[in-house]
Amino acid sequence: MNAINVPLWAALPAAALLVIGGLLTLVGSLGLLRLHDFHARIHAPTMGSTLGAGCILLASILVSSALAQRPVVHEVLIAVFVVLTSPVTAMLLMRASIYRRRG
């Protein structure tokens, strides 16, 4: 793995962010199994797609900036994209579920 070459000032916060992001994503997806109703389940993956993805993207920005020795911010694009799109899917699914339960 190439990650050994990352300087310590970037490696420590990136490692912490990776651990936090991984755990948040895991808990969010665990909610898909542990909650009993679809209307409760729809809230669970939002954890992974907001803060989980945000932490891992921030770690990616830190590591790639440290390796390139200049600020690399194009991971922000993925963050913007995920933040813009995941609510659309959640809203459509919510409305679809309401419609299908009524009909």
Partner: peptide
Amino acid sequence: TACPGSVWA
């Protein structure tokens, strides 16, 4: 919707 725990319905 982006805040976990609430969805616009």
